Simulated assay, not measured.
Amino acid sequence: MTGSIASVKGFPGFSVYAASKAALHSFARGWLNELKGRNIRVNVLSPGQIATPIQEQLFDNDTKRYFESLIPRGKMGYPEEIATAALFLASDDSSFVNGVGLYVDGGTSAI
């Protein structure tokens, strides 16, 4: 499932969005238990600030700098970095990964 770091951060103006994303973690825990006999893994992938083409249209430079200032890594992530994490969770390399919330956010959710 695709979550968001908004589920664990208190971003002003995002409370309804954050609550909907936080609910995914509850679904994951329930589904993990319900589906355990079928060998189905349930994880939540939660991206942070990701540089996307729509941001070029919506964000001015000050807004981009503000978002980047929240990221310990110092720059936004890229869609390819989220794709790599999703591929890991979908692959046999993560066969023993079950019920996790994977935050792919450059460390934003950690502080």
Rank of each mutant, 00 (worst) to 15 (best):
I111L: 13
Y78I: 05
S20E: 10
V97K: 15
G13T: 09
G10R: 07
S109M: 12
F11D: 09
N33F: 01
Y66Q: 10
P47V: 04
S20W: 05
L32W: 03
P12Q: 02
S95K: 06
H25P: 01
F59Q: 05
I111S: 13
L102Q: 15
G37T: 04
L70C: 03
T63E: 04
F27V: 14
G107P: 06
A28T: 09
F88V: 13
D92E: 10
G107Y: 05
G3M: 04
V8I: 09
F59Y: 04
A18G: 10
D105A: 08
V100D: 12
V44H: 08
W31H: 04
F14Q: 15
V8C: 06
Y66D: 08
I82C: 13
E68T: 01
A51H: 03
L58E: 10
G48L: 01
E34V: 00
A23K: 02
G101D: 14
H25C: 05
Q55W: 01
E34F: 00
P79D: 07
G107V: 08
K36R: 12
D60A: 06
F67S: 00
G107R: 07
G106S: 09
G77L: 07
F59H: 04
F14L: 12
M1A: 15
S91F: 06
P72Y: 04
P47K: 06
G107T: 09
Q49A: 10
F14Y: 08
Y78V: 06
N98M: 13
L45G: 14
E34G: 02
I54H: 06
I71C: 01
V97F: 14
P47R: 07
F88Y: 15
F59I: 00
S4W: 05
S94V: 10
L70K: 03
G13A: 10
G99P: 13
Y103E: 14
T52Q: 03
V8F: 04
M1R: 13
F14D: 10
G74V: 03
A86D: 11
D60N: 15
G37H: 02
